[in-house]
Each structure stands twice: as structure tokens, then as C-alpha cells.
């Protein structure tokens, strides 16, 4: 039998996950609807004062995106764990960390990228300026993959548990702090007309660090959950 190369394996996993997501497209709406609804709650609770909403809109959108990511990340390995295909992935000759990276990439494409299209709309509803919306999108683009990558570790750790949901949030949210801070900082700087490159460079650095490092503990945790 011919051995597939590492990149072929990577592509195959991404393709398979995208196909699976497409076959169950009704589920793709859930994180989006959740994202929109959480954002809607804030004006209802705070009152519709435009200046106030404009000031806190980026924070609202970011926190909502973070919660939406947390909600959808739980499905990252769940189905594969239940039907046993995860065990087959562990048994392939390819390093599990690379396959993990592929699965996280597919998850990001399916659950986070659609948010990028809705977020500007939400920004407009909260009276954000258009150039600030651009910066917000940039931070979401750089930050959301990190959320998925870090979330993957916690999902892998809690995979075998019956009551993993609440625990997942406790494990993941403290690790989300830096990305939230830099994203908020970048948007804040943009709102006051300051350069944002410091914050975005840090976000890029965190993104590359996360791409390099997080698949390793995720793979270790998956093996532990399967043993």
C-alpha cells in the first residue's frame, strides 16, 4: 500500500471534516445564532444610548465571539471520539499533532470564519465607525484561530468525561485572557486614532506560538483520553 505524505493526510482530514460539516449544515447556524443573540442582549440590558454602545461594542462583539467559539469547540473531537474514528487517526503513521492541527483548522473554517462575515453587521448595529470595524475584523481574524487551538487542548482533556461542558469553560477561559486583552487593546487604540501595530504584532506572535505548540498537548491529551 502506498504511504500518504504528511500534507496529503493534513488535506484529507480537513476535506473530510468540511464534508461532514456540509452534510450537517443545519448545525452550522447554531454558533452564528448564538453570537447574534448574545450581542442583542447587551443593548437590551444597557439601554440604547448610542455613545455608550459605540464605546463598548468591540468588547461585546469579542466576548460574544469568545463564547460562541467556546460553545462550538466542544464538538471538535466529540463525534470522532464517539464513532471510533479518532482511534484510527491515532493509529495512522502520521503524528497525531499534525492531524489535530488539521481538525482545528477545519473547525475554524466552519465555525469561526462565518462569524467574520456577521461581525461587521453587528458592528454597524452597535454604531461602530467603519474603520474601527475593519480593525475589529483583523483582530477576530488573528484571534479566533488561537481560541480554537487553545480550546482544543481543553476539549481533548475533558473528552472522556460525562459532564465536560462546565469544566471546559473553567479550563479554557483563563487561557483566553491574553488574546482578549490584545484584541481589546488594538480596537481601543484604533478608536482613539492610535497605531495598532503593537497589539496586532503581539496577536500574530501568539497565533504562531499557538499553531506551533498547542497541537502537542492536545495530541498528548487525546492519547490519554483514549487509553
Amino acid at each position: 500500500m502506498k504511504q500518504s505524505s504528511l500534507f496529503q493526510a493534513l488535506g484529507a482530514v480537513i476535506k473530510r471534516d468540511l464534508l461532514l460539516a456540509y452534510r450537517q449544515r443545519a448545525e452550522l447556524i447554531n454558533p452564528l445564532a448564538f453570537f447574534v443573540m448574545v450581542i442583542t442582549l447587551f443593548p437590551l440590558a444597557l439601554g440604547a444610548e448610542i455613545a455608550l454602545l459605540k464605546r463598548i461594542a468591540p468588547a461585546i462583539i469579542w466576548v460574544a465571539a469568545l463564547l460562541a467559539s467556546l460553545m462550538s469547540i466542544d464538538n471538535l473531537f466529540r463525534a470522532d471520539y464517539d464513532d471510533g474514528s479518532l482511534e484510527l487517526m491515532v493509529m495512522t503513521p502520521h503524528p497525531l499533532s499534525v492531524l489535530v492541527l488539521a481538525k482545528v483548522t477545519a473547525h475554524w473554517l466552519v465555525s469561526s470564519v462565518p462569524l467574520l462575515f456577521i461581525a461587521p453587521l453587528m458592528g454597524l448595529m452597535l454604531h461602530m465607525d467603519s474603520d474601527v470595524i475593519g480593525v475589529l475584523l483583523l483582530t477576530l481574524l488573528l484571534g479566533m484561530p488561537v481560541l480554537s487551538l487553545i480550546g482544543g487542548i481543553a476539549v481533548a482533556l475533558t473528552l472522556g468525561l460525562r459532564k465536560g461542558g462546565a469544566l471546559l469553560a473553567i479550563l479554557v477561559l483563563p487561557l483566553y485572557v491574553p488574546i482578549l486583552i490584545f484584541a481589546g487593546g488594538a480596537v481601543d487604540a484604533a478608536m482613539s486614532g492610535l497605531p495598532i501595530s503593537g497589539h496586532t504584532s503581539m496577536m500574530c506572535a501568539i497565533l504562531f506560538l499557538a499553531i506551533t505548540l498547542t497541537p502537542l498537548p492536545t495530541a498528548a491529551a487525546l492519547k490519554m483520553s483514549l487509553s
Partner: peptide, 9 residues
């Protein structure tokens, strides 16, 4: 083992 992985992260 799970805790060790989490603590290292």
C-alpha cells in the same frame, strides 16, 4: 496525567 498536561500548558 490530565492535570499534568494542563499544568504544563
Amino acid at each position: 496525567r490530565a492535570v499534568a498536561i494542563l499544568a504544563l500548558v
